[in-house]
Amino acid sequence: MLQHNWILSLHPLTKFYFSLSITISVFIVSSYWYAMAMFGICLILALWAGVQKAFLQNVLLALGFLLIVLFLMQAFFYPGNQVIWKLGFLSMKAEGIHYGLIMATRILAIGSAFILFFKITAVRDFVKALEDIGLPPMGAYVVLSTLQIIPEMRKQSRVIMDAQRARGVETEGNVWVRAKAFIPILTPLILSSIASTEERAITLESRAFLTKNKKTSLYKLSKGPLDHVLPIAFVVILVGLLIGRVLG
């Protein structure tokens, strides 16, 4: 990532408002062309921020299969009269294809917006921004720990797999070999997760996390000129789209 990249230097809430604006706008504009355009904007921003490879990988892994299944379900089972293709009791209808494209591209736009958000925003920065606007420290900790639990468990599982591999356990091969190698890591993974939870509880208690006094932090987030302009622009665009939807 580029250190002086303007996208990366935006305030976390500005990036979050962008993702939220895309989510709202694809429901206002019921067009798969618009949803695809929103995905294209996310891709351009990912390219601009230097995270395009990780962004596309995450979109493909997280949304690819879901979008295909969703589109096929709507194409074959959505009610309609204009049959395009038929195989036995299954019939693909034009109405189903249209609705399937709208639903699939809508999920693609929303998912890609939030995948981009987490690719260009540190979780710590996002939680600190929420705390700055009034989220209680307990709530901030819950959000932070929830967002970090899967990456932490993935990292811990890799460490355990490396340890098992060092002991001569076969961890690579076909699905059956990998399944057998995965089972022995479950116990140490669960135990290490419990131990880390206890360590966090002790750390929080030692830092007087549960006291009623006002919390202070050495870590500060600052807003630039764009962080004041862009949220207003997002609202104006959404209002314009909504007016266009009502009048159109």
Results as ranks from 00 to 15, higher is better:
Leu61Arg: 11
Gly40Ala: 11
Tyr32Gly: 01
Tyr32Thr: 01
Tyr34Gln: 07
Cys42Val: 04
Ala49Lys: 05
Leu61Cys: 05
Val59Met: 02
Ala49Asn: 02
Gly40Glu: 05
Asn58Arg: 15
Gln52Asn: 14
Ala62Tyr: 07
Leu60Gln: 11
Trp48Ala: 10
Phe55Ile: 08
Ile41Pro: 04
Ala37Val: 03
Trp48Thr: 14
Ala49Gly: 05
Tyr34Val: 01
Phe55Glu: 08
Val51Arg: 09
Trp48His: 11
Leu63Lys: 01
Gln52Met: 15
Phe65Thr: 09
Ala49Phe: 05
Leu67Asp: 01
Met36Trp: 12
Trp33His: 10
Val59Gln: 01
Gly64Lys: 00
Leu66Phe: 13
Gly40Leu: 11
Phe39Cys: 00
Leu56His: 10
Ile41Leu: 06
Trp48Met: 13
Met38Ser: 02
Met36Ser: 10
Val59Leu: 06
Val51Cys: 08
Gln52Ser: 15
Met36His: 04
Trp48Arg: 13
Phe39Gln: 05
Met36Ala: 15
Ala46His: 05
Gly50Asp: 03
Gly64Trp: 03
Ala37Tyr: 02
Gln57Met: 12
Ala62Leu: 15
Ala49His: 02
Val59Phe: 04
Met36Asp: 10
Gly64His: 02
Ile68Phe: 07
Cys42His: 06
Ile41Arg: 03
Ala49Pro: 02
Ala62Ser: 13
Leu61Thr: 14
Phe39Leu: 12
Leu43Cys: 07
Ile44Met: 08
Gly50Phe: 02
Val51Asn: 07
Leu61Val: 13
Lys53Gly: 03
Gln52Val: 14
Phe55Ser: 02
Tyr32Glu: 01
Leu63Ala: 04
Phe55Trp: 11
Gln57Ile: 14
Met36Pro: 09
Phe39Thr: 11
Cys42Tyr: 09
Ile68Lys: 02
Ala46Thr: 08
Ala35Pro: 08
Lys53Met: 15
Leu47Cys: 11
Ala35Tyr: 07
Ile68Thr: 07
Cys42Arg: 05
Val51Ile: 14
Ala49Cys: 01
Leu63Pro: 04
Phe55Leu: 06
Tyr32Ile: 04
Met38Lys: 02
Leu47Asp: 07
Trp48Gln: 14
Ile44Gln: 00
Leu45Ile: 11
Leu43Ser: 13
Gly50Tyr: 01
Leu56Phe: 12
Gly40Asp: 05
Leu45Asn: 08
Gly64Gln: 00
Gly50Ala: 04
Leu45Trp: 08
Trp48Cys: 14
